[in-house]
């Protein structure tokens, strides 16, 4: 069943000013429940505007966003309720931390949602566990945490609202390889347990190819492609023409294919590439 349906969605900035710019241009697309959607496109492709329309932070200039079949702007006064169903983690979310303790900060969302103290306690501790924050850290001031811990605390603040759809806008930006690895694993662990729909916006094609079920490619406000990572990254030329890259390993296998070697296209991981190349080497009698 599709959880979000987007119909003829458009958004134009600064209408009737010299700065008028179409950020999202007539997008039609459906997302299934429990899917991990990777969203790629270079800066200015409209992907940030698009995801902010999913939870009603930006009101579309035309078109609709249907959440479980209902237009989210049907009752504009109740748009806040949508934000608990579609959680949104912005880029560098650690800059939104504000409360005295990490615990209180994570409980901000659930409290706004109107949960009682027991429910809040339960959901805060569960969210903290997902992102690997210990009980000891919960009583600390968020400003005393390390960079990586702050990031995870901020993500927990959104997870704690228990959204059916979770949007993550470049959650790993600026982290070191170790921090990135840990965070990705935690997000996937969370997804496995909660089984909700996740939007993952990223510039890292390696990350996208690892975790996404389907990938959306946006370019100049339009939805250019929407398919499995394997099929998307198999189209190296098209991706590169939009100023994007494919994972290095995909590129290597594609280049070998172009030179006439019999390999599967759309290889996404080093492990896959390794077994492909080993098989080829065996067939050719090199090893």
């Amino acid at each position: 069943m599709s959880i979000i349906e987007v119909k003829d969605l458009s958004f134009t900035y600064g209408i009737n000013t010299p700065f008028e710019k179409k950020a999202v241009d007539d997008v039609n697309v459906c997302f299934n429940e429990g899917e991990v959607i990777g969203l790629i496109g270079h800066t200015g492709s409209g992907k940030s505007t698009f995801v902010q329309m999913l939870n009603g932070l930006i009101k579309p200039t035309s078109g609709q966003v249907l959440l479980e079949g209902k237009d989210i702007w049907e009752k504009p006064k109740e748009i806040r309720k949508i934000r608990f169903k579609v959680g949104m983690v912005f880029q560098y979310p650690e800059y939104q931390l504000f409360d005295e303790t990490v615990y209180k900060d994570i409980s901000f969302g659930p409290r706004n949602k109107g949960l009682n103290e027991n429910e809040i306690d339960l959901t805060v501790r569960k969210a903290a566990k997902f992102v690997g924050l210990s009980d000891k850290l919960l009583n600390k001031s968020p400003f005393d945490l390390s960079g990586g811990e702050k990031r995870r605390a901020a993500i927990a603040g959104v997870i704690a609202m228990d959204p059916d759809v979770l949007v993550l806008d470049e959650p790993t930006a600026g982290l070191d390889p170790k921090g990135r690895e840990v965070l990705l694993a935690q997000i996937m662990g969370y997804h496995k347990e909660r089984k909700n729909t996740i939007f993952f916006v990223s510039h890292s094609m390696e990350d996208i190819s690892r975790i996404a079920d389907r990938v959306m490619v946006m370019n100049k406000g339009r939805l250019e492609m929407f398919d499995t990572p394997k099929n998307i990254f198999a189209q190296v030329e098209k991706i590169e023409s939009m100023g994007l890259r494919v994972p290095q390993i995909t590129k290597i296998i594609t280049m070998l294919r172009e030179r006439g070697y019999d390999l599967t296209d759309g290889v996404l991981t080093v492990e896959q590439a390794f077994s492909e190349v080993v098989n080829l080497l065996k067939r050719e009698g090199v090893i």
């Binding site: 806040r80 934000r83 959680g87 912005f90 706004n112």
Partner: peptide
Amino acid sequence: EETDKIMSAQKARGAD
């Protein structure tokens, strides 16, 4: 610009 961003982020957490 930053105020805008933080406001959006808190609204996304249900701030009224």
